[in-house]
Amino acid sequence: MSDASISEFDRDTAVRRLSPGEYATDLSARWSFGQVLNGGYLLGAIGRALADALPHGDPFTISAHYLTATASGPAVIRTDTARTGRSLSTGSASLVQTDENGIEVERIRALATYGDLDSLTGEVRTTAKPPHMPSYEECVSTNDAPDPSLIPEFARRFAMRFDPATVGWAVGAPSGSGEMRAWFAFADGRESDPLSLLLTVDALPPTAFELGVTGWVPTVELTAHVRARPAPGPLRVALTTRNMAGGYLEEDAEVWDSTDRLVAQARQLARAPH
């Protein structure tokens, strides 16, 4: 298979086993916001290494603490298996880079449990509802931005359509609601899968923008739960923030597939711009 036929996400989260539990990866600037790489993209690379290291292939839950900002370029992911069972396996991972002084710096530390999503029962009992939002065609494309030159490199990886009720921030009129909703798909046509959902939960602009706060909103900790294998087609993503205080905010994410099934959830703690 040629490189041209591999999706950007798969190519840019690829890992190469150096030794048991240790993987090399080359992090791409295509997933950057300014000089910093997106946390969901980095979680995708870590998730891929864990999928290889653990006997189960699907992420069920992963919690990552972001210790220092990660830049594009070479990195090493070291994994450790904590426990393996018939239905679940648990392990940890650490992403490290070498700084300009030749010193190894740990960027992210994660703990995850993996399983087999296809083995889950089909029973669903839930009070959760898909986000109420206009159709894909009625939503606002990233290409409709007032100044396309301000679209971050990261956002160009997607074909997203935003709920018009949550894009006031883009024209200087944030709603103050702390909500963000959008249809999500990859720009190169790649269909979503359990691994890419680790990126999807962190792909939209931060809800802080609709609260009237702009600038870099670095993630302190992100926990993602993958609930089901997504059906083909665009996903619907809804983000909410209920409390921004003391310079920090929480952000809850829900991801729904084309069959109205909740396929992923996440919560993160982020630092608000000063």
Rank of each mutant, 00 (worst) to 15 (best):
G85C: 01
V201H: 06
G246F: 10
V237L: 06
S94M: 10
G34S: 04
I62S: 09
F162T: 00
P74F: 13
V237F: 02
A69N: 09
V255R: 09
H225P: 00
L88S: 01
E22R: 13
A4E: 14
V15D: 08
G34A: 03
E104L: 11
S2L: 15
G91N: 03
E104D: 14
P205E: 04
Q35Y: 01
L222E: 07
R125K: 14
A182M: 02
T25K: 05
P230L: 01
V237E: 02
T241G: 07
T121I: 03
A71D: 06
D202C: 04
L198H: 03
P148N: 10
F186R: 04
I108A: 11
M160Q: 09
T241D: 06
A224T: 15
V255C: 04
L54I: 03
V171S: 07
I77R: 08
S119D: 08
G85N: 01
T241C: 11
E251Y: 07
A4N: 12
G102D: 14
A14Q: 14
I46K: 06
R11M: 06
G247C: 09
V171I: 14
G73D: 12
G91M: 00
K129I: 02
D147A: 14
V36P: 01
G44R: 06
R83S: 01
W183N: 00
A112Y: 04
V96I: 13
T127V: 12
S135T: 12
F158H: 08
G172K: 02
R30Y: 01
P20M: 03
D118E: 12
L211C: 05
L18E: 15
R48V: 03
D260T: 00
I46M: 14
T68P: 03
G168S: 04
V124G: 03
D10S: 12
T90W: 00
V105I: 13
I151M: 09
L198M: 10
I108T: 13
L43H: 07
G212W: 03
P164S: 08
L43K: 12
G40F: 06
D252Y: 02
S175I: 00
P218C: 10
A208S: 15
R157L: 10
Y136E: 13
V255T: 04
E8N: 12
P130K: 01
E179R: 07
P273M: 09
A64F: 12
L111Q: 13
A155N: 08
G40T: 09
H274V: 10
T200S: 08
F209S: 05
H132S: 14
V167D: 00
R16L: 15
L67Q: 14
L88W: 01
R236E: 05
A253H: 02
G178T: 07
P206Q: 02
I62D: 09
S175H: 02
I108K: 05
D80G: 07
P194W: 06
S87V: 00
D163L: 00
A24Q: 12
M160N: 14
A93K: 05
D193E: 05
A170M: 12
R261K: 10
R48E: 10
F9A: 07
L88F: 05
